[in-house]
Write a protein that binds this DNA or RNA. Structure first.
Lengths: 202, 202
DNA sequence: ACCTCCCCATGACACCTGTCACCCCCTCCC
DNA sequence: GGGAGGGGGTGACAGGTGTCATGGGGAGGT
């Protein structure tokens, strides 16, 4: 019995290309493709998927949240997160969410099939270049509120707008921003938001 | 004689997957793969490439600049730009640079081979969803200086830092920023920079 | 009970930003 | 020649921003 695989990626071309790549392997069969995170569970149940390849940045539901959902609702299906960005915090959050593997998109193509087999066998697969870096500084120093406020600041909105969106006073928002700026070692909210985003903290 | 194709994309996994996808076609042969824009020309000359698939965001040299280089240095090789982002300005700039085609990565996988064939036949291939939108408002309203200053502002640097980097007085930088904010209909530099970036103006 | 940490909030202060008026230069074009 | 437009610059002003001191409240650990 070959390994039943689901592909979740918002870019149809990448999805189709990965399907072609994996279909070259005799022991792997791509049985489902979806472009949104919130369509994964339904397909996993319907097709009896063994391994779900999840992109992180998808409409509907992120790959990380999807992995957590699968762990609860479909524990026989293992998750392999395949993402564009090798952000330290992503790996940590993916593993915490119950993903069995984490592969960056610039790994050699030949290794993907091997990663799928390992995950299916119950092993963990972690991109080696990230493993060391991540577990050291991957933890976010930000509190929940700081994270929330920074995420809003990413778009460049002024304090008043942010305050309205998170239902806080303008002064409190500025305090959170100031705290986040201090923790990230930056000099203003924009730099802080970028750094936090690049580290996968948002 | 089958069509000789080169793949240029900084993500090895995507590159390998696209190679697998295109290799399913009997009349297409992937003869070269590179991960950097500045390695394309060399490979095109060495392998006698007919069609170069170029990602835009690559280290070394952007896909757009690479297309322009190929037009000059290897006019028998046609360029097909394949990119993640459907930004209006990208299409316009790609076509101005001499690319024969422009495809977004979330087009159906099956259409890629057809796009390659059309480009090879000397036809233009343009993503239909972008064609209308792009040629209307794809032109940037920004002057060179405004573009330059906005690009620096993208990182969140304060005016003093930007002024030092572009060798202008702080006041002039603020004037350019103010002008750019006005033209983009935004309220501050961060929003203006994001909008300009998303439209491919930077 | 006590300490620590996070959360919410206010007021004050220095500084940064966005805008405007006004000046200069140069180039292109009618 | 004159006008339009881009570029570079200055000074001034209102308002936004970052920091700090100082409150109060609650959850968790010792």
């Amino acid at each position: 019995m070959s390994i039943q695989v689901l592909l979740a990626d918002d870019q149809a071309l990448v999805r189709g290309a990965l399907a072609a790549l994996l279909s070259l392997e005799h022991d792997i069969e791509v049985v489902a493709e979806v472009g949104r995170g919130d369509e994964v569970l339904e397909q996993v149940r319907a097709k009896g998927v063994d391994v779900a390849l999840l992109d992180i940045e998808m409409p509907g539901m992120s790959g990380i949240d999807t992995a957590a959902l699968l762990r609860e609702q479909a524990p026989t299906c293992r998750s392999l997160v395949v993402t564009t960005f090798g952000r330290a915090g992503y790996l940590r959050r993916a593993l915490e969410a119950g993903a069995s593997g984490f592969v960056v998109k610039d790994t050699p193509a030949g290794e993907l099939a091997e990663a799928v087999r390992r995950v299916h066998a119950g092993l963990r697969v972690v991109d080696p270049t990230l493993a060391t870096e991540s577990l050291l500084d991957g933890a976010s120093p930000l509190t929940d509120r700081e994270r929330e406020v920074l995420a809003e600041a990413l778009s460049g909105a002024p304090v008043a707008t942010i305050a309205a969106r998170v239902h806080l006073s303008a002064g409190t928002v500025r305090n959170h921003l100031s705290s986040a700026i201090g923790k990230t070692g930056t000099t203003n909210r924009v730099e802080a938001a970028r750094l936090a985003h690049d580290n996968g903290w948002l």
